[in-house]
Design a protein around this nucleic acid. Sequence first.
DNA 1: AACCTTATTAGGAATAATTCTTAATAATAT
DNA 2: ATATTATTAAGAATTATTCCTAATAAGGTT
Lengths: 132, 132
Amino acid sequence: MKRRNTQQKQMVYDSVVMLDHPTVEEICCYLQQSNVSQSTVYRNLTVLMDEGRIFKIPIDGFADRYDFTQSRHYHVTCRHCGKAHDIDVAYQSALDQVAKGLDASISGHTVLFYGACDCCKDNSEHILTDIL
Amino acid sequence: MKRRNTQQKQMVYDSVVMLDHPTVEEICCYLQQSNVSQSTVYRNLTVLMDEGRIFKIPIDGFADRYDFTQSRHYHVTCRHCGKAHDIDVAYQSALDQVAKGLDASISGHTVLFYGACDCCKDNSEHILTDIL
DNA sequence: AACCTTATTAGGAATAATTCTTAATAATAT
DNA sequence: ATATTATTAAGAATTATTCCTAATAAGGTT
């Protein structure tokens, strides 16, 4: 089955790049004006992940988010707002080395930090009352 | 609101300890004979996470799994069978140090390795035909 | 440039996962 | 023992995701 380059697929990819670590809902909302259907968004997210052009960031208690593949980096996910933020950590290759020593054939790894992002840290009182 | 120590809550906790990184479904199945309802399982998993006694392992493409809090460790999640396996990695404190330097108040971190677990690596042909 | 072939789409139905609702129960304090 | 109220079972409701089908359009061929 040869893959086609459809406008919808490109728009889904573009929205992942354009929006900042969007959720499915945010992508759908953004593409709603372009008449891209919800199932098309889901399907193309899967396709783009298969192609390695994007990947998913699991967020505990909130909707998963998507990021496009550029330089390797990790993420902080915020317990208050559920957003993801890029961070650079020096240990990628060290952890790759660890992976080689494991009794499993590892194809990759990720590090997830969780806490309050810069934005929520400042307004933590306000945010907490919003949430609780 | 003061928390109670119910039999059901204890059974949910015990099943997370007893079963090996179970999914919600596996816990429900295990507790079915004890007449613990599904919503009680969900509710108590949330409660136990709030109390810090258990935590969730997100598994891409498969159901989330749960683990109980003991010594700090990371996990390998298998792309074939969706199971989680414990691993020890030397970088916990190094990554904690990284967290301190970040422009966010970090409360924790985790590392997720993904690939084929020992079991699936051996039977990868068989497993692949099962899946694809 | 018109024509095939067939992957992809829109739209909605179907399914699966999780949360919510309510009256009954049982854990804990008094 | 009794009272208070958090917790429960059961299932309804909601939400997220996948599946289905006829119509469309991408991209190769002439």
